[in-house]
Design a protein around this nucleic acid. Structure first.
Length: 643
RNA sequence: GCUCACAUAGCUCAGUCGGCAGAGCGUCGCCUUGGUAAGGCGGAGGUCACCGGUUCGAAUCCGGUUGUGAGCUCCA
């Protein structure tokens, strides 16, 4: 008749009596205020559940992701309760826990202002102070229906309609009741540090044809300190914002006069881009890629044949007439590469053909989604198409994944999440090609991932219209995820364009096509990179690698000489000619995040040396100029080749 | 595209009740000639996003347009 309880610290206790979770917690005063959830047989259970004899109960705290979710879900309920107290006419939408916090959607007459948010937060504190017990209640569908109808909660009724069960659960705390599967914290008083962050509109069920509700975002932590740390992390992310750094470091601009989503690369940003592009070309050549170029526009018929006009039209820019023929701006490079393939008869001996292009494409994006460099309307894909036989497919995919991970590691990205994006099986009409092709394509991707021993997540409905994909998400210095490489297998376009190669059997065969990009788009990648490095680029990427700082005006000629020699050696160097003190110029160089500062005064001038200062590290002492150049050379080379 | 907010000097931002357009940083000039994160003084720089309305008078109030931000949805 005993039950075993596993505490969050790993220790176990055995209890002989038949008690509910809530009662069990009362027996554990030292844990009572830390335990947020209980799990039996892998499932979260409610506080008033009474475990069966012999059951094994696991208690979770906020440190466990499931415990955290329960904690923040309860915070969402407290938010809803506070809103209902202050705005009784508000109708409830949904209010889940999300990564780093929670939200709740409300249908209210007018949007929430920051002041109203403060009032709501105060009311939440009051609810927490009242330490209301939170109770689950089971209702029949009919009773639940009656309850929410009387309350006028039309959105809850809509959710209720879609629930299959005959019985549903509601959660109550004080005067508040919400349709919810739970579970929840035992009492509102367990919430410690709660903060509302912002409010924004959000369509009911994410559907723009449905009413827009007002969403309030917030977060909750078990102590003030953790909340403050989180807020500091947000602040840090704000400081790293590539839009801010892009302007401060004079890397790029996007201007109203030119058009939203169209990037102007200033010299300093262009340098970084040039280095990345050169590195990219070199690494591709090493791996058997050939580089190609294709035009920005193509005839409408080409896009019709490729299927873009049918499947991608809403992302394509309007047509232009050239001597009576309709042309469209390219949203992808693939049709051009296909035409190149078709320009000659191909033999199995030619395959695989790996054709890479830094191709600038244009896609219509709705104005509301544009965001700095991360979402733009004109961007350069580091694109490539591999034409190969079915037998070669798996090897090619493996090689692409390896190339992608190698290149990303050069930019300091070491952590990844791999997704296998497949069709939404319920919406097959959204994709071209028949089932067997899709199955074969997915099979090749899975086989490659298994061979690489990579863990991956299957994402249904994430595939492009022409084929399944491996999508790799990279993690930056703050642990944030960004969409990086994607590898798509395509059996469809070769079919549409009737691509063939002559096999060893002297017969025509259909090649397979792989679309792939390792950086994604240069614009987006640069945006990620700026935030990843917080603008402090490693020496090999830094737009300005060295700034020479003359101590006084009479050292200017020597400073110019030093800079000249370094420029001649291929480094990117500036001289600070301003009539200011050394400390001022050092500060300027630090703020500009320049990796090396060379201070030159009488001592250096006499001895032909430079006083080297490293960004954020300080004075490294004097060095002969040649010695410094060698050090710099070595540092740059190390970065490019894998050090 | 939709909801809400915002748009003032190159940047960050003040500008009260509708009454002559402001600060700091940057930039330029002068003084200073310096030794590892901010020396001093002075100058230039604005069609207050754009268009219209109300008013004797609009940066300020109202309407529209464009752009930006937070989201919703979508993607490289």
């Amino acid at each position: 008749m005993s039950m075993e309880i596993q505490l969050p610290d790993g220790t176990c206790v055995t209890v002989e009596e038949k008690l509910s979770i809530r009662q069990l917690l009362d027996r554990l005063p030292e844990w009572k205020n830390k335990i947020t959830a209980a799990v039996i047989a892998g499932c979260l259970v409610d506080m008033d559940e009474t475990p069966e004899p012999g059951a094994r109960v696991e208690f979770l705290t906020f440190d466990d992701p499931r415990g955290r979710e329960v904690y923040r879900h309860t915070a969402a309920h407290v938010l809803a309760q506070a809103v209902k107290r202050l705005h009784p006419q508000a109708k409830l939408g949904i209010g889940p826990a999300i990564e780093d916090g929670f939200y709740y959607d409300f249908d209210v007459g007018r949007p929430f202002t920051p002041e109203v948010l403060e009032d709501i937060e105060r009311e939440m504190q009051e609810i927490i102070r009242q330490d209301l017990p939170i109770r689950r209640q089971l209702l029949s569908r009919e009773d639940a229906h009656r309850l929410f109808r009387e309350m006028g909660e039309s959105y809850k009724l809509e959710i209720l309609e879609e629930l299959p069960d005959q019985q549903v659960s509601v959660y109550r705390q004080g005067d508040f009741v919400d349709l919810c599967t739970g579970p929840h914290l035992p009492r509102t008083g367990m919430l410690e540090a709660v903060k509302l962050l912002n409010a924004a509109g959000a369509y009911w069920r994410g559907d723009e044809r449905r009413p827009m509700l007002q969403r309030i975002y917030g977060t909750a932590f078990p102590d003030r300190e953790s909340l403050n740390q989180y807020l500091k992390r947000l602040e840090e992310a704000r400081k790293r914002d590539h839009r801010r750094l892009g302007r401060e470091l004079d890397l790029y601009s996007i201007q109203e006069e030119c058009g939203p989503g169209l990037v102007l690369w200033h010299p300093k940003g262009a340098v970084i881009r040039e280095i990345i592009e050169n590195f990219w070309r070199r690494e591709h050549r090493k791996r058997g890629y050939e580089l190609v170029y294709s035009p920005h526009i193509g005839k409408a018929d080409l896009w019709r044949k490729s299927g873009h006009l049918e499947w991608f039209r809403e992302n394509m820019y309007g047509s232009m007439l050239v001597e009576g023929a309709e042309y469209l701006l390219k949203p992808m490079n693939c049709p051009f590469h296909i035409l190149m393939y078709k320009s000659a008869t191909r033999s199995y001996r030619d395959l695989p053909l790996r054709w890479a292009e830094l191709g600038t494409v244009y896609r219509y994006e709705r104005s509301g989604v544009l965001h700095g460099l991360l979402r733009v309307r004109g961007f350069t894909q580091d694109d490539a198409h591999i034409f190969c036989t079915r037998d070669q497919l798996e090897d090619e995919i493996v090689a692409v994944v390896e190339l992608a991970l190698f290149m990303l590691s050069r930019f300091g990205f070491e952590q990844f999440e791999v997704k296998l994006s497949v069709r939404d099986p319920a919406k097959k009409e959204k994709y071209v090609g028949d089932d067997s092709l899709w199955q074969e394509a997915e099979g090749a991707l899975v086989a490659a991932l298994n061979r690489l021993g990579m863990r991956y997540r299957v994402e249904e409905g994430e595939a492009k219209f022409y084929g399944p994909a491996i999508d790799i998400e990279l993690k930056d210095a703050l642990g944030r995820g960004w969409q990086g490489p994607t590898i798509q297998v395509d059996f469809n376009l070769p079919e549409r364009f009737d691509l063939t190669y002559m096999g060893p059997d002297n017969r025509q065969h259909r090649p397979v096509m792989v679309h792939r990009t390792v950086l994604g788009a240069l614009e987006r990648f640069l945006g990620n990179l700026i935030e990843h490095y917080a603008g402090a680029f490693p020496t090999w990427l830094a737009p300005v690698q060295v700034r020479v700082i003359p101590v006084g005006e009479r050292h200017l000629p020597y400073a110019q000489e030093v800079a000249g020699k370094l420029v001649e050696s291929g480094f990117r160097v500036e001289v600070d000619t301003r009539n200011e003190k050394v400390g001022f110029k050092i500060r300027g160089a630090e703020l500009d995040k320049i990796p090396y500062m060379l201070v030159v005064g009488d001592r250096e001038q006499e001895r032909g040396t430079v006083a080297v200062r490293r960004r954020r590290e300080g004075d490294l002492g004097p060095m002969r100029l040649a010695e410094f150049a060698m050090m710099l050379e070595q540092e740059v080379r190390q970065w490019e080749s894998g050090g």
